[in-house]
Every structure is written in structure tokens, then in C-alpha cells.
């Protein structure tokens, strides 16, 4: 005969069941997946390809400058000679073009770390998709509450943690999946892999995405759960998304920003995810920098997850 004791409501099983539910819902709505990928794809295609910063320094830009012959008195030369020397204009032009294009490559290398801007910003789009995906998937708990699903789950003996963790896990898994699509598309569109890239680096990328995803989604879930109006989280997300992206190294290196903006960019977790992913894909791997990135992302994830989960917990057990 059945008795209450035969049931073992467990965190793992509850977490699994609730996460599978979300993933099933998600996969049954491919349009939503597409829409979220579309945005960074458009950015990548339009901005990444149009802002061809590297081309500013190419010789083509000097093509229409005509330089006449230059005549130099022989005593300026090393060693000095007694006649005057005439250097033909086309030769000077050719040498300048050569120099300029060397400088261009060096400027790109020094500023962006890579020779092409597209690779630089395409990686930034990974951070963008992680941010939007985790923020928006926090919204699903608003629907769960509104439709009564949350109350029903709360009336079962499933551990409360499973409810919150399933949301965090789901948001993070989605972010990882979408980031994979973005990276694949970026590669097709011409992302230049660095010489230190191996498939193992992908694990590092997922780890970094996981950390940022957990941090961001924990906070947004707690926030969505506690806000009384469903529009509020949407408004906040659209308000902070752009500033967060521009005040980070997503599009442009931090070192060239004004001081006040640098201050923001240096605490902005997006900067650290972007840098970590760049280190792992397009830059020659700089181990100390990568360790700093991961240390920051870990602290960010731990602090925000603790904060978000405590807030959600208190709401769910009120």
C-alpha cells in the first residue's frame, strides 16, 4: 500500500525535471532561439564588417597622393657625396605606402591585439548573447508565477532550491548554446583563430560563459520574481543592455576610453568574459590575463549567485 514514505523528493531529481521542462519548452519555440541569435548576428554582420578599422591604414588610402621627385644636396647623405641626388617620387610613394601599411598592422595589433576588427568584435558578441539570454530567461519565472505554476510547484515537497537552480541552470545552458551558434557563425563569416587555439580552449570558453551566466541569471531571476509588474524587468533589461555593452571591451579596447568610462569597464563583468574568450580564441594566449579574467568571473558569479539565490529563497519561503 502506498505511504508518504515511499517518496523521496530530491534536489537533483526536481532540478532535472524542472530543467527538462524548460528546455522542452524552449526547443518547441525555435523562433525565439532564432530571434535572440539574430540580434548579435546583425551587429556582427553590419557593424563588424562595416567598421573595417584595419583598412584605414592600408596603402590604398595613399594611392591618390602624388609625390614629386625630391632632390637632396649630396652633403646631407651618409656618407656625403659631392653631387646632388634626386629620388624619384614614385619610389618615395612606394616606400611610404609600405611603411604605412606596416604601421597599420602594428596599430591594429597594439590596439585590438588582432589584425582585423571583425574578429575582435565578433567575440564581443558572445558576451552580448550571454547577457541577453540570461537576462530574458529570468523572465520565465514571472510567467510561472502569473499562471499559477509556481504556486503548484511550491505546494509539492520538491526542495525550494531546485526551483531556483533550475531557472539558473536553464538560463546558463541556453546562453552556452546560443554562444556556440554565434561562434560558429563568426567563424563562417571570417573570424581569424589564433595560433594557440585548440578545441580544448572551447571548454574554457564554456566555463567562462557558465560563470557569467550563473551570476547574471541569479540576479535577474530574483529581480523578476520580486517585481510586482511584469513590464518592469523588461524595461530594466533594455535600459542597461546598451550601456553595459558599450562600457566594456565588447566593441573597443578599454585603454582608449576616457578615465570615467574605464572605471566602469573595469568592473563590468562583460569585459572579463569578452577578454577571456578573446584570449582563448583569437589572441595568443596570455596565461596571467586569463587567470585574472577567470578569478574575476568566479567572484562575480559567487557573489551575485549568493545574493540572487538568497533573495529568491526568501521570496519563495515567505
Amino acid at each position: 500500500m502506498s505511504s508518504a514514505n515511499e517518496y523521496k523528493p530530491s534536489l537533483i531529481r526536481g532540478l532535472w525535471a524542472l530543467t527538462v521542462r524548460e528546455l522542452k519548452k524552449w526547443l518547441k519555440d525555435p523562433v525565439m532561439v532564432l530571434m535572440l541569435v539574430l540580434q548579435p548576428l546583425i551587429w556582427m554582420g553590419l557593424l563588424g564588417k562595416s567598421m573595417n578599422i584595419g583598412a584605414l591604414f592600408t596603402s590604398g588610402n595613399l594611392g591618390n597622393i602624388s609625390i614629386g621627385n625630391i632632390t637632396i644636396p649630396g652633403n646631407y647623405l651618409i656618407p656625403p657625396v659631392n653631387t646632388t641626388v634626386t629620388i624619384p617620387g614614385p619610389l618615395i610613394s612606394q616606400m611610404l605606402q609600405q611603411m604605412f601599411s606596416d604601421i597599420g598592422t602594428r596599430v591594429m595589433q597594439n590596439t585590438f591585439g588582432v589584425a582585423d576588427y571583425f574578429s575582435y568584435m565578433a567575440v564581443g558578441m558572445v558576451s552580448m548573447i550571454v547577457m541577453t539570454t540570461t537576462m530574458f530567461s529570468g523572465m520565465s519565472i514571472v510567467w510561472d508565477r502569473r499562471l499559477g505554476f509556481l504556486d503548484k510547484v511550491l505546494s509539492t515537497p520538491v526542495p525550494r532550491g531546485a526551483i531556483i537552480f533550475s531557472k539558473v541552470l536553464n538560463a546558463t545552458l541556453r546562453a552556452m548554446f546560443q554562444a556556440t551558434i554565434i561562434l560558429a557563425l563568426a567563424y563562417i563569416l571570417g573570424l581569424q583563430l589564433s595560433s594557440t587555439f585548440t578545441l580544448l580552449n572551447l571548454l574554457g570558453i564554456y566555463a567562462a560563459i557558465f560563470l557569467l551566466g550563473v551570476g547574471l541569471s541569479s540576479v535577474f531571476i530574483a529581480f523578476s520574481l520580486r517585481s510586482t509588474r511584469m513590464e518592469r524587468p523588461m524595461q530594466i533589461i533594455s535600459l542597461i543592455m546598451m550601456p553595459l555593452m558599450f562600457a566594456s571591451n565588447t566593441f573597443f579596447p578599454i585603454s582608449l576610453m576616457p578615465d570615467w568610462m574605464q572605471a566602469i569597464a573595469r568592473v563590468n563583468p562583460l569585459s572579463y568574459l569578452t577578454d577571456a574568450v578573446r584570449q582563448l580564441i583569437i589572441l595568443p594566449l596570455d596565461a596571467p590575463a586569463l587567470i585574472t579574467d577567470f578569478a574575476y568571473l568566479s567572484i562575480f558569479a559567487a557573489v551575485l549567485a549568493a545574493f540572487g539565490i538568497v533573495l529568491s529563497w526568501r521570496y519563495l519561503t515567505k
Binding site: 524542472l18 522542452k24 505554476f149
Partner: peptide, 21 residues
């Protein structure tokens, strides 16, 4: 109506079962 619209009736019941362990 708290059953998940995107899941089948059977999947919904099994979800409840999972929550009870």
C-alpha cells in the same frame, strides 16, 4: 490551469511525479 501548454498531458503528470520524487 497550471499544466504546461508546451508539454503533453502525460509529460505534465510525469513532471508532477518527479516533483514528489
Amino acid at each position: 490551469y497550471t499544466a504546461d501548454e508546451d508539454l503533453t498531458g502525460y509529460e505534465n503528470i510525469m513532471l508532477c511525479a518527479d516533483l514528489y520524487g
